[in-house]
Design a protein around this nucleic acid. Sequence first.
DNA 1: CACGGGTGCACAT
DNA 2: TGCACCCGTG
Length: 563
Amino acid sequence: MGIKDLLRFLKPYTEPIHVRKYAGKRVGIDAYAWLHRGAYSCSMELSLNSEGEKKLQYINYFMHRIKLLKHHKITPVVVFDGGNIPCKAGTENERYRRRKVNKEMAMEKLKEGNVGGAIELFQRAISITPSMAHLLIQTLKTENVEFIVAPYEADAQLAYLSSLGEEHGGIVAIISEDSDLLAYGCPSIIFKMDRFGNGEEIIIDKVFNSTEIKPSFRNFNTNLFIDMCVLAGCDFLPSIPGIGIVKAHALVSKYRNIDRVLSVLKTDKGKQVPDDYARSFKEAVAVFQHATIYNREKKNVEHMKELPETLLESLGGEIDFLGPIIPPSIATAIAEGNLDPSTMEAYECSLSQKNSGLAEIEQYEVSDPADAVETRSASSQQTNKGNKHRAAKPYPAFEVHRDKEKQEQSCFTVYSYLSIKERSISSTSTMTVPRQVLKERNFSDEAAALSKLVLASEAHNDEEISSVSEEFLVKTPDNNPFRKRKLHSENTETTPTTKSSVTEDDQSELRRQTLDSQESVNSTTQTLDDNKEQFKVLKKGKISNCKASGNKKSSILNFFARI
DNA sequence: CACGGGTGCACAT
DNA sequence: TGCACCCGTG
């Protein structure tokens, strides 16, 4: 997506480069792009959540590129998407639906024995789930690769980092695929980087200063550039029919003032221009200028650039569309990868314990395994549907106490609770980390270090295994312990109906932690109440994380710990 | 020039 | 899928 046709339009300004140009520098990485690409090699395995290491191929892909950067003495700073901002609502549900259809068709093909056809469809069903992101985060942690989870758009966070000096954690360039970064004002962006480190770079100063090159931007400034981008159509606002990048550029060049451009368009296009276009336009521009980002030094969330009074007034003080401000403790937990920004649940990993060989992790069959998949999917879908017409909710977690129905649907989830000793894993090579996490053999040494898992219940059967990612929590080391999460609403009986070989100890541990969780939830609720003022803004938004996570979100109780 | 439709590609082996 | 690229149409 991004800005329609912008990259093509700026083609004359792109220069082939190699990343070694940034040796010794800090470079930002838009995690989503590589996650998505990496997932191609294992789309079927991810979708089926099948056993084995293949489905972790995307981690290898990513880390391979990290290695490449390190090899060239670059310090990578990986940035993940957080919650979607309200303006972006809409697209996601549709995407989710399509993915689901693709997946269903893929399953068909598979049953027919047409593996090739199935893979093709699985590739169309790829979605980057929070658990995939989190597994990558775990890997980055063990490899000491710097990362940050943006409160909302990774692009905005990257732009913000670009504006900081390196001594304050800033970056000098960004590796991405997304043309939005230009609108956000990033000075230097590398597109289409391949596995050898070759890519195409656009340097915004060159665009503004070049006297020779074709589409001239010589009388442009950053603001006009953003105006042009929004006119041409962006993720937050579609363009007026008949207006593309070329006309947008022409209009802005000619009038050099957006209000004039808008009034000209109004007279020229009349009907074609939506009534609230001017306002929507200002909001879209504001997202690029004042997006909500995480300030690591202050450990809080703020706007990339403060909103001037005049703008605030013209928007009637309504700035929720930028994404609600999140309380510092939560923002930090999100940024550090301990809290899923879209659900506010503690993170889960999509390791398939069923087949992973983790001895301790057992599958618990719960009540009616029959339609676990359908239940899950159906509830997700309902959720999505329900949100379609009103503004979607950004943080469903906060609605838990209101949304009984959802709670009821949420029922079970398996989760486990591992603690990983950073020390023990970090010495291993990048490529083996995921395996190590998954393999029983490798585990055994550290069995003691890896704590027990707990589990709760999620209805599942083989079918589900193959379609819904198994999840369990990884507890991070000492510094940010977060608690588990996910309870059944009335969970006096959260204690799973275990019929497997859990030891007594495990069971009592489980019960203990279950109680613990209960407490956590209560205190969470408290926290929310305390922050009511701040959170009343949570009324619109979107249920989704990482641009593509259609999957799970749905309906679980969450909570997060005392941070 | 905008826009819709069609194609091919990513990853990897 | 998401994206780039090409082509024909209005």
